[in-house]
Design a protein around this nucleic acid. Sequence first.
DNA 1: CGGCATCGTTCCACGATGCGGAACCCACCG
DNA 2: CGGTGGGTTCCGCATCGTGGAACGATGCCG
Lengths: 256, 256
Amino acid sequence: MSSPTIGVQVIRRAFAVLRALAGGPLGVSDVATAAHIPKSTAARVLAALAAEGAVEQVPGERRYRLGPDLLSIASGLGETWDIVAIARPTLVDLAAELGEAAGVSIRDGWTVQYVDQVEPPNPNPVQVRDWTGTRIPLHAVSSGQVFLAQLPAPVLSRYLAEPLEAFTPATLTDATALLERLRQVRRDGHAWVRDEYSIGLSSVAASIVDARAEVVAAIHVHGPSYRFPNPGDEDRIAGAVRAAAARIGARLRAGG
Amino acid sequence: MSSPTIGVQVIRRAFAVLRALAGGPLGVSDVATAAHIPKSTAARVLAALAAEGAVEQVPGERRYRLGPDLLSIASGLGETWDIVAIARPTLVDLAAELGEAAGVSIRDGWTVQYVDQVEPPNPNPVQVRDWTGTRIPLHAVSSGQVFLAQLPAPVLSRYLAEPLEAFTPATLTDATALLERLRQVRRDGHAWVRDEYSIGLSSVAASIVDARAEVVAAIHVHGPSYRFPNPGDEDRIAGAVRAAAARIGARLRAGG
DNA sequence: CGGCATCGTTCCACGATGCGGAACCCACCG
DNA sequence: CGGTGGGTTCCGCATCGTGGAACGATGCCG
């Protein structure tokens, strides 16, 4: 291998297989193709994963899909798990109300990690792809700015010390401009971002606060800039997002 | 190896590690002990899992915990995922209302698979352990009986063809007795089970029906038999469980 | 303040373990 | 009945993981 390739390779492959299956049930050959591994190896890995309950054959067919045992592991995620589970119904409502996709994210170091997303009912054919599982630098997206806005000043300045990557011409790469934006975010309780991460994509986000008054997650709604937000509709939309975030926070604080 | 030990062993170990971490953050040595693998191997596996985002170091500390990327995989579970996510808030309410633990399960072959469980607030010190991730034969538990009650006759008789394992003296191991019970379940819309799986443990379950009118999951509430159900309280409790199941079903049918 | 108990990391030679190409089998289809 | 494509099995090779042990960092306690 030209690159050192750190780590245990079977594990790499196993997860490649799991991620491939996350898209829906697949047969052995498809898995092999999707995960870039030889067919026989794919079969062996699938068998091993099946023995662990991480995947299972869909009854009748011979394709594989993710197995329910993953949930028993995922439920060990603790607070993160609670957040996703609790947020889901509210996201469904929010997506329905605004007609665009809604999602939750958490902060992971200097990036946002999107952990769940729900599409509106009767989604418009023009829709934003599902970002679940993606990590994006904090300054480039609305959820990230929400996280940044509540960081203690010294921590924040450590983030600003490094150069801010540009994704589009609109990305805020200047520390001063970003600080000004964060001031707005703190004032409004939400962050509006247009075309800063991807051209033609707009989003609003608001933060979720747990019992210890800490920001543990953020929710957002996003859609194509040409129709979202409709001019003059920004406040209504932002209000809905803030309200949803508040509701989720309340549930989180109430129910364990 | 005395036993053939089928499967890829690194994968076995990787999942042993993940399951160990499902209980909460652990250091390398603890993981090694819990998963019964040498320390250096544990470190290597953890590093590999970390590279996949399946685990992460808790910031500041050096212990590891499950990583958010698991969610991006779990969200590929499709309907099962939706069920858990949607059921959670209702389970929280239900557990609070009845003061005992509530859970969701799905059917997996001839077993029930518990996929989530929530404890009541201020739980009594005497509580039932968390069954999440466990599989139990259908006839022995309330959720299982709910699933059995709606199986087509021919499928059901295939299950009854094999001997029914006894877990306690109260387990229904006689096909006729079980059929009679299932009749009750169909009539009532719920299943009450006392001491049939474990002595001193009682539970009620009701089924969750999706848009295609299929039973896709069941919820239950269970507690120690000495206090649950309180005499004369069976109907109220069962009613609450049925209502919760109906609510979850409705949400499931509405929101994607 | 210094020594001891832990915990994590690194190293390396050994060999078990997983690898994967190819042959085989089966189910489905034309 | 011959062909195609997916799944499973086989088996010799060497890769990849293994784990004991030594090292280094931490932090607790005396």
